[in-house]
């Protein structure tokens, strides 16, 4: 199994750390891993991103161009990468910053824009257009071999006591959905990655990881079915 993952957002949102922790956790489990940042001038203000590959096989190209896991923490990242997602694929969207009704999200699951009218007509759950399914609160939508997870990550982190742990909330959801690594490995990775100076942040980060995982368990997530 090979996971090709792309993490994207503003500089300062902990994008690089998310990727590093996953790579670290994969390494702890004896998997082959690679991590590579975008290091271009776009890091000033625009999108920062990193590619992570976690695999049972040797990693070939470390630069992920067709991610099976896409994590977008801001709107420019969604715009830039939504049409690169592999199928089957999972997309994790920070809806604290990105509009949960952003048209790119509908396009990802193959909606043709008729969703609203259908809903007005039929209403109810999971019948927005023929091939699109969704959880009751529509925070997970699926279709065309793609699932989109809409996570209000900053608010969840704020409720836990520190909005800056939004990246860890996202990471918790990613782990729970994809099973790319074990939670225990992520916890060990966090222990190693957080410097002594920031030991006080350990607790909130761990709590955020587990809350993210819990978010997934509390949703009736549709199965990932192949496109077509």
């Amino acid at each position: 199994m090979t996971y090709e993952m792309l993490f994207a957002g503003f500089g300062g949102q902990g994008i690089m750390l998310m990727g590093t922790l996953l790579a670290y956790a994969g390494m702890i489990e004896g998997k082959k891993v690679s991590w590579i940042p975008s290091y271009g001038p776009e890091m000033r203000g625009g999108t920062a991103n990193c590619s992570v590959v976690v695999s049972d096989e040797d990693v070939g190209c470390p630069i992920v161009t067709e991610p099976s896991v896409l994590v977008v923490m801001n709107e420019p990242s969604l715009q830039k990468f939504y049409n690169t997602v592999a199928r089957p694929g999972n997309v994790f969207v920070n809806t604290s910053i990105i509009d949960p009704h952003h048209p790119a999200l509908a396009r990802l699951v193959g909606e043709n824009g008729e969703r609203k009218s259908q809903k007005e007509k039929g209403g109810g759950r999971a019948v927005m257009s023929e091939n699109v399914s969704a959880t009751e609160d529509e925070s997970v939508i699926a279709g065309e071999g793609v699932r989109v997870f809409k996570i209000d990550a900053n608010r969840i982190a704020q409720d836990l006591g520190n909005g800056r742990a939004a990246n860890m909330v996202m990471l918790g959801t990613i782990r729970e959905v994809t099973n790319v690594v074990e939670m225990a490995s992520l916890e060990s990775a966090l222990q190693k990655a957080i410097s002594k100076r920031h030991r006080d942040l350990m607790e909130i980060n761990l709590k955020a990881l587990h809350t993210g995982a819990e978010w997934v368990r509390s949703h009736d997530v549709p199965l990932l079915t192949p496109a077509g």
Binding site: T20, M27, K32, V33, S34, I36, Y39, V59, P62, I63
Partner: peptide, 10 residues
């Protein structure tokens, strides 16, 4: 090359 310099691996 830049990719080999910037990437992390075990």
């Amino acid at each position: 090359d830049g990719a080999l310099g910037q990437m992390m691996e075990p």
